[in-house]
């Protein structure tokens, strides 16, 4: 099922940031979001993930199909790598965590507490969570932050495998992942500032 976005307008903190956004994301495809800082990429991903309501427009085919990965990984420092991953697997319906550990080379860290991992290792664990959700659409917000070059390649392989299985991905990133993907620049959709309140206008 295709994710379709029609005439979407979104706001952050009550201020409109993007408007008139239209795109479709078919199974097996990836879409890279680009745009300067503050353009509204994170807000767009959060809106599509259902964390906040859109100002206007329609989102179709997103309900209960999205695995969202934001800036924080949602890891508990006092749980081990396995326990963290097992928890998310259980919440999303009890999948095997072994393939996820393998895909991000977390096997030898499995018994380590998440609080003792490096920033890049935490990120890898956060991304491994996507694999245990079993959700078809990945929404990734700057997924490669603090990853080294090998880990970025690992991540790109995981995304390719996911696309190969009929999944899709929407990725906000500033680096080249080497994926065959369309690019959506959100710059042209920037919302025009609302007209200033002018209470005296009628009199002048």
């Amino acid at each position: 099922m295709t994710l379709t976005v029609t005439d979407l307008a979104i706001a952050r903190g009550g201020i409109p940031v993007l408007e008139g956004l239209n795109f479709a994301l078919a199974p097996g495809r990836a879409l890279i979001l680009r745009g300067p800082n503050g353009a509204g990429k994170t807000t767009l991903l959060r809106t599509l993930a259902g964390l906040q309501p859109p100002l206007a427009g329609r989102i179709e085919g997103a309900e209960d199909r999205i695995a969202y990965a934001g800036h924080s990984d949602g890891l508990k420092p006092t749980l081990s790598v396995t326990e963290n991953l097992m928890f998310w697997a259980a919440v999303f319906g009890g999948r095997d965590i072994a393939p996820a550990l393998d895909a991000f080379a977390l096997g030898e860290l499995a018994e380590r507490h998440a609080g003792n991992l490096s920033a890049g290792q935490k990120r890898r664990l956060g991304l491994a969570r996507l694999l245990v959700t079993g959700r078809p659409i990945w929404m990734l917000d700057e997924p490669t932050v603090s990853l080294d070059r090998d880990a970025v390649a690992m991540f790109a392989d995981a995304v390719r495998a996911h696309l190969g299985q009929g999944g899709s991905a929407l990725i906000a990133t500033h680096i080249d992942l080497g994926l065959e993907a369309e690019v959506l620049d959100v710059g042209p959709y920037r919302a025009r500032p609302a007209p200033l309140d002018d209470p005296d206008g009628d009199f002048l």
Binding site: R46, A49, G50, L51, D64, I66, A67, Y68, G70, H71, S72, D73, G74, L75, K76, W88, V91, F92, G93, R129, T133
Partner: peptide, 14 residues
């Protein structure tokens, strides 16, 4: 909330 778990739980099937 601080470590992002709430965001992820809100998008979970629960």
């Amino acid at each position: 909330w601080e470590d992002g778990t709430l965001d992820l739980l809100a998008t979970a099937p629960l």
